[in-house]
Computed example of a mutant assay.
Amino acid sequence: MDGAGTATPRRGNGMPEKRRAITAAARVVFGREGYARATLDAIATEAGVSKRTIYNHFTDKDELFRLVALEGADEVTDTIHALMERHLRKILDLEEDLVAFGVDRVRAVFDFPDHYALVRVLQAEVTRLPAATLETWRLAGPATAHLRLAPYLRAIADRGLLAFADADQAANHFNLLTITDVLQRSFYGAIPLTETEIDTVVGQGVAAFLRVYGA
């Protein structure tokens, strides 16, 4: 494992469809078995390829895990960006639009079950994972989520609808009051929440946010 945590995922020199099959299988196996117990043999069986084919694309298990974790984080980030564009670019009713964004973002958690299974692995096996893998994933997802939301809140504040000195801090508080609460209640998507539960958590979180930051 020495040095593996800093290797850059490479494209490999095999057929693209086989690489996609490997990463899809790895996401399933890592989510099911965990990082420590998952083996390249099991991933090869799941993907329907040989173990040698995996080595044609990836250096080792660490590199493969890091890649699928980052790919999942990118997919979730892209989805949330689209939701921010849909709900926060043009504000008609601030509270309604913030609630609609929050609810749709929560639903997106349950649209990526394989990715959030990996997130649960990251949470459960944090001491077994390469430090570079953890840090790279953290910066791609949870540690910077508020930074991607902040420009939208800043634009809303420029219209006189919100008031704060620090947009990054306000965005972080919004996340804590809405999506973070849901992630904890659902154990990162492992336990489904009802529509009523989602509406209640997000609605209460947005109301609390506006009590602090509403203009």
Rank of each mutant, 00 (worst) to 15 (best):
H87K: 03
H87F: 15
L88N: 07
L88H: 05
L88E: 09
R89P: 02
K90C: 04
L92C: 08
L92K: 14
D93R: 12
L94H: 09
E95N: 11
E95L: 00
E95T: 13
E96K: 15
D97W: 04
D97E: 13
L98K: 01
V99I: 15
V99L: 10
A100R: 12
F101Y: 15
F101I: 00
F101T: 04
G102N: 09
G102P: 11
V103Q: 10
D104A: 15
D104Y: 01
R105Y: 05
V106E: 15
V106W: 06
V106Q: 08
R107M: 06
R107E: 13
A108W: 06
A108K: 09
A108M: 11
A108V: 08
F110Q: 04
F110C: 05
D111Q: 14
D111G: 01
F112P: 03
D114P: 00
H115A: 09
H115R: 05
H115Q: 15
Y116M: 11
Y116H: 15
Y116T: 05
A117E: 02
A117L: 02
L118M: 13
L118A: 08
V119I: 01
R120L: 12
R120I: 06
R120K: 10
R120Y: 14
V121K: 08
L122C: 06
Q123R: 01
Q123C: 08
Q123V: 07
A124N: 14
A124M: 06
E125K: 11
E125D: 07
E125I: 10
V126T: 12
V126F: 03
R128Q: 11
R128A: 13
